[in-house]
Amino acid sequence: MNNIIDAHIHLDLYKEKEIEHIMESLESARCTDLVSVSFHLESCRKNLELAKIYPQVKPAFGFHPEQELLTDHEAADLFQWMEANLDKMVAVGEVGLPYYSRIESEGAFSLEGYTELLDAFLRFAKKWDKPVVLHAVYDDAPIVCNLLEKHSIKNAHFHWFKGDNKTIERMIQNGYHISITPDVMYEEEIQRLVARYPLQQMMVETDGPWQFESEFAEKITQPNMIHRSVGRIAEIKQLDVHKVYEILYRNTKGFYQL
């Protein structure tokens, strides 16, 4: 096996024993780094503590959009905390827009506050020259592209991306990165994305503790699953698997300055 990096995981959301198991198994999985993204301020703090314990954990700080919007006071507290811990963070994330919450909502759902909050995160990232980890799929992706272009941000990572061909082409032209999850083993939509997107703008992730289907059903999501993803990417791209490992690893190292 070649070395890998999990470009997107919510390590803080695992149970304590699961965290211990994942960290103990990193060497055998040939995983050198985990980019652990945050859900909210408490999550940021937990990821920072994990990074102090485990040097392989590279924390990103932000606010996941698939939850109730922050109040102005809560947002101010989060940004103040992030600025106080700039030297500890590899990126701003996970941030974005609440596509799934909006689709599942039975009543009126205003996107305005979420868009304003994302704009604030992008201003923060631009000011402090930090990459951005994005939750932006389908109809939300063009909105996020508009905001990225507005702030002239190139270091954008769309994790587990899904969207139309026009947006995909726009993202490619803008130099944005995507990351591929283990569902590349069984999801045709993700396989088509892999075929279309340049390998030089691609990373691999687990998005754990999210659980996957097929061969991964009922298994705890952990970085060793990434090896199956890399093999499938190599098959789709019709490239030597060792070369694919090398490019994906280099992409992630470079993007996050690890």
Results as ranks from 00 to 15, higher is better:
N2L: 13
I5L: 07
D6E: 07
H10S: 13
K15V: 10
E16M: 08
I22W: 09
L26D: 09
E27S: 08
E27V: 10
S28I: 07
A29G: 03
T32F: 01
T32G: 00
D33S: 12
L34C: 02
V35F: 01
S36G: 02
F39M: 10
S43I: 04
C44D: 14
N47K: 02
N47H: 00
L48Q: 14
E49A: 08
E49Y: 11
L50W: 08
Y54D: 05
P55E: 06
P55Y: 04
Q56H: 11
Q56V: 02
A60C: 05
P65N: 11
H73D: 15
A75T: 01
L78C: 04
M82F: 09
L86I: 13
M89Q: 13
M89N: 06
V90W: 12
G93M: 03
V95A: 07
V95Y: 02
L97N: 00
Y99S: 07
E104C: 04
F109E: 13
S110T: 13
L111F: 14
E112N: 13
G113E: 06
Y114C: 08
D119C: 01
F121T: 09
A125M: 05
A125P: 04
K130Q: 11
V132N: 10
V133F: 06
V137S: 12
V137A: 10
Y138A: 07
Y138G: 00
D139Y: 14
D140R: 01
P142C: 05
P142E: 15
I143N: 12
L147W: 09
L148S: 02
E149H: 04
K150C: 00
S152P: 00
S152R: 15
I153G: 01
K154S: 14
A156P: 05
F158M: 02
H159C: 01
F161W: 15
G163E: 08
N165D: 15
I168M: 13
E169S: 04
E169W: 02
R170T: 15
I172K: 06
G175D: 05
Y176I: 02
S179C: 04
I180A: 09
M185Y: 04
Q191M: 08
R192A: 12
L193I: 10
V194S: 06
V194H: 13
Y197M: 12
Q201P: 00
Q201Y: 14
M202V: 06
T206F: 02
D207Y: 06
D207N: 00
G208R: 00
G208F: 04
G208V: 00
Q211M: 11
F212Q: 02
E213M: 11
E213V: 03
F216C: 00
E218K: 12
K219V: 10
I220R: 15
T221M: 04
Q222R: 11
Q222W: 12
P223K: 00
P223E: 01
N224M: 13
M225H: 08
M225A: 06
H227P: 03
R228C: 10
R228A: 15
V230F: 13
I233N: 05
E235D: 14
K237N: 15
Q238R: 13
L239T: 09
L239I: 11
V241P: 13
K243C: 14
V244W: 03
L248A: 01
N251G: 01
G254L: 12
Y256T: 05
